[in-house]
Amino acid sequence: PKAGRGAARPAPEAARRTGPVRGTPRERLRAWAELLRVSALFSVPGDALAGAAAVGGRPGRGTVLAAGASLCLYEAGMALNDWADRDEDAVDRPHRPIPSGRVSPAAALGAAGALTAAGLA
Rank of each mutant, 00 (worst) to 15 (best):
G46A: 11
R93N: 11
A79I: 08
F42K: 14
D47M: 10
C72I: 09
R61S: 11
A84N: 07
G77M: 08
A90V: 12
P105R: 03
G77D: 08
G56I: 03
L71Q: 04
D82V: 01
C72F: 07
A108L: 01
P45T: 01
A48D: 02
R37L: 07
F42T: 15
A79R: 04
V44I: 14
S39Y: 07
S43Y: 11
A106M: 06
E34G: 15
R102Q: 04
A79S: 11
G51I: 01
G60E: 03
D89Y: 05
A90M: 13
A53D: 10
V38E: 00
S104L: 00
A106R: 05
D92P: 06
I98R: 00
G56Q: 04
L73R: 11
A48C: 09
P99W: 01
E75F: 02
S43W: 10
R61C: 14
S104E: 01
S104Q: 01
A69M: 10
R37C: 09
T63C: 01
R86Q: 06
L109E: 02
G46K: 04
S100G: 12
G46F: 10
I98M: 07
R37I: 06
V55Y: 13
A111S: 04
R102V: 00
D82I: 05
V55R: 15
A84G: 02
A111T: 04
P59V: 13
P105Y: 02
A111R: 00
S104P: 02
G51S: 10
G51K: 02
R37D: 14
A84T: 09
G57L: 11
L73T: 00
R61P: 14
P105T: 02
R58L: 11
G68E: 08
S39P: 13
C72W: 03
E88W: 15
R58K: 15
E88F: 15
A66M: 08
A54E: 06
I98C: 09
L49C: 08
E75S: 15
S100W: 10
P59M: 07
D92W: 03
R96L: 12
R86V: 04
S104D: 03
D82Q: 07
A40V: 11
S100H: 06
A40H: 14
R96E: 09
F42V: 14
C72N: 05
G60Q: 07
G77N: 14
L49I: 10
R96I: 08
S70W: 05
R96W: 03
L109R: 03
V55L: 14
E75N: 12
G60Y: 01
L65F: 07
